[in-house]
Every structure is written in structure tokens, then in C-alpha cells.
Amino acid sequence: MYSQKVIECFMNPQNVGEIENADGVGTVGNPKCGDIMKIYLKIKDNIIQDAKFKTFGCGAAIATSTMLTQMVKGKTIEEAMKITNQAVAEALDGLPPIKMHCSCLAEEALKAALWNYAQKNQLSIEGLTPPPNYVDEEEKHTHSEDE
């Protein structure tokens, strides 16, 4: 059901881990839907120097996390803002329709990490709104139980 590329990205995931003192951290998803994605960004001079992830989820969720973190590295914030879920899915040679939400989660996780970065530095990033499914680091997962 998965493309060869998805299997590759799942079997050999890249950028797994945490970044200490990350400049932006974004967590999206909840246990109910079965996927939680957490993206860490290191940002310097408006450029994403490094990106890492931790993901609880299916093969597609791991693969989209790998692909997204690969795609954002070295990009400016403005360039990163243009990465869509379709672009992530296309870079993986497509996803099964039922798994497209994993690519949406990847885009949302990136936006959440950028939002976190902007909040911390009191910046305004053009086109960036408070992300849906945004989990504040302070109260993560606790609210999802009573949804």
C-alpha cells in the first residue's frame, strides 16, 4: 500500500531525536487519532539550521516526519512557510488516501514549531496563524482525554 520511498523513509528514518535548547518546538496530533508528531528546529539568522523529530505513529507518519525535516533544513523561514502537505506527500511519491492526514500533520507540526519560535522571540511571521492541533508544551496531551 505504501510507495517504495515511504518504506525507505520509514526503514531508515533521518533526523530522529531532540535538539537541546531548540529555538522552536511544535507538537501536533493526539493519541486518539493515533499520531503525535513533535518537531524541533534550530534557527539562526532566519535560516533553519537543523530539524529533528519524535513521532508516535504509523509508517506514513514516520516517513512524513523524515521527509519534512529533510526538506526544511537550510531553508529560510519564508521558504519553509511555503512547504505544503502536498509537497511532502509528493516527495514521498504519494501516500494512500487514508494516510494523507499524516502529511497534514507534518505541515502542522512545522507551523507549530515556527509559531513557538515566533512566540518566544516576539516575531511576526507572514502568513503564520496559531496552528490547529497545537499542543502547548506546558499542558501537552492532558486536554486530549476529554475531547
Binding site: 519524535k54 513521532t55 508516535f56
Partner: peptide, 9 residues
């Protein structure tokens, strides 16, 4: 588990 944010937490 090494990839899981739930395990990290």
C-alpha cells in the same frame, strides 16, 4: 520507542 515523543515524556 526511541522515536516516540510519548516515550520521551
Amino acid at each position: 520507542r526511541a522515536m516516540s515523543p510519548l516515550y520521551e515524556e
